[in-house]
Design a protein around this nucleic acid. Structure first.
Length: 470
DNA sequence: TCAACTCACACATTTGAAGTGC
DNA sequence: AGCACTTCAAATGTGTGAGTTG
């Protein structure tokens, strides 16, 4: 098995397992300490990818160690500069909707989490430069705890309130366009707006059945219905959420991995980025009214709650009154003055209400790309479950998810993702079968075949091991 | 008692099938 | 027949506020 120490030898023997201890790296300035700790905190869950990442030139074992500190850290980072750790020289990421994030961050970003999953707003949207136009890359996103504290809204601000809950299963979201060429990624901003956040741990794989519809919705229930209609074995509906604790502080991270396909045996390096302004606190209901106002003002789906919306407080109050007075008066008033609000209501934001939404406005070609995967390749939206073994999970706990294939010819069960991590230590030597055929959704993937990453479907998710959530 | 959470609701937006015209 | 465009209905994404839970 690959120990993270082997993946990042530059981190030295002191490389710890388990969640980072706040303040433990006090010898570094906070930013540097955080950057230094970066690979330690969560790299293991990416190991499943790293172990399978393409490229060609070298195997994982032959890859040079990552720098002790990312180049961006060598100098005083510019304000809001992403902290980066990477072995993809020349590659850089910038947050497309930085101004919007900043606006939220200045107030204290809150993200709603629900059982069914709630999208992030603002969503992470980045533009990338410096990629090899011909090479193929994966874009991944995960969300990690910022510290070990639980937070509480104290009327005016968030304050730490005790220790954080035990960490939940880590998952990584794979951008549905992955893998795609560098040219594709650089052509337009990369949006992660489909990521959902949940507090539900009922299904360890995040399999929340979406509402079934008649239409063949990309990435939703329609795909399953279509598979059934075509007589194929029905795919499990995909998990669609990252699991978070409420009242905890989190930060999204974006990972870029050079890879020809999801499950090949080589990798060509990776880069990880995070942006300070994207830190948020997860909540089940908004605590800070200013955040509510910002969300209503900026999110087109909340347009109905704006001052002139039919769902603003004034309108809602009027509806309640009409209901109480009975259907007749309600019908009368509905077609009377109540339809055109004339005065202000509570859901206002002064003059800051945006007419157009910078966040959700699709980038040129975005809708097209979503409907038709680029490069003729697969759409791969996926989650990875964190290999709990790296986080000190007791060895007596279940070893892997049912859909988690064992390493071939291993003859034993793989503890969590251990099977994925037992990789060849020399070039050209592989403990696994050759990389799967380029055909993106080979049957053995769909049925949980011998390859490390059980691939569900285009736009679906990966579960690569599980850990108990209790 | 109270903070945190869940749920149903109404409205806005998104999406894709069906219809239409060329 | 095939393509482009429009229309329409259903799915989906929002915040709200009452009710529930611990």
């Amino acid at each position: 098995m690959y120990h993270p120490r082997e993946l990042y030898p530059s981190l030295g023997a002191g490389y710890r397992l388990g969640p980072a201890q706040p303040g433990a790296d006090s010898s570094f300035p906070p930013a540097l300490a955080e950057g230094y700790r970066y690979p330690e905190l969560d790299t293991p869950k990416l190991d499943c990818f790293l172990s399978g990442m393409e490229a060609a030139p070298r195997t994982l074992a032959a890859h040079p160690p990552l720098p002790l500190l990312p180049p961006a850290m060598d100098t005083e980072p510019a304000p809001s500069a992403p902290e980066a750790l990477h072995s993809l020289p020349g590659v850089s990421l910038s947050l497309e909707n930085r101004e919007l994030w900043k606006e939220f961050s200045s107030v204290g970003t809150e993200m709603i989490i629900t059982k069914a999953g709630r999208r992030m707003f603002p969503a992470c949207r980045v533009s990338v430069t410096g990629l090899d136009p011909e090479a193929r890359y994966l874009f991944l996103l995960d969300v990690v705890p910022v510290d070990g504290a639980r937070y509480r809204w104290q009327g005016r601000r968030w304050e730490p309130s005790g220790k954080a809950e035990p960490r939940l299963p880590d998952r990584v979201y794979i951008h549905p366009d992955s893998p795609a060429t560098g040219a594709h990624w650089m052509r337009q901003p990369v949006s992660f707006h489909r990521v959902k956040l949940t507090n539900s741990t009922l299904d360890p794989h995040g399999h929340v059945r979406p509402r079934l519809g008649l239409q063949d919705r990309v990435g939703g229930a329609g795909r399953e219905a279509k598979a059934e209609a075509q007589g194929r074995e029905s795919l499990p509906f995909p998990p669609s959420q990252l699991i978070l604790h409420s009242m905890h502080k989190y930060q999204p991270r974006i990972h870029l991995v050079r890879a020809a396909q999801l499950c090949s045996q080589h990798w060509g390096g990776m880069a990880s980025f995070r942006f300070p302004e994207t830190t948020f606190i997860s909540v089940t209901a908004y605590q800070n009214p200013r955040i509510t106002q910002l969300k209503i003002a900026a999110n087109p789906f909340a347009k109905g709650f704006r001052e002139n919306g039919r769902n603003c407080k004034r309108e809602r109050d009027a509806r309640v009154k009409r209901k109480l007075r009975g259907p007749e008066s309600a019908a009368t008033e509905a077609y009377g003055s109540g339809d055109t609000p004339g005065g202000p209501c509570d859901s206002t934001l002064g003059g800051d209400i945006r007419e157009s939404d910078p966040e959700q406005a699709p980038a040129p070609g975005e809708a097209t790309a979503a409907r038709a995967p680029p490069c003729g390749g697969p759409s791969a939206e996926a989650y990875l479950l964190h290999p709990a073994a790296f986080h000190g999970a007791p060895s007596h706990l279940p070893t892997r998810s049912p859909s988690f294939p064992e390493a071939p010819d291993s003859g034993r069960s793989a503890p969590y993702s251990a099977a994925f991590l037992e990789l060849p230590h020399g070039p050209g030597v592989s403990g696994y079968p050759a990389a799967p055929p380029a055909a993106p959704f080979a049957p053995h993937f769909l049925q949980g075949g011998p390859f490390p990453l059980p691939y569900t479907a285009p736009g679906g998710y990966l579960d690569v091991g599980s850990k108990p959530m209790y």
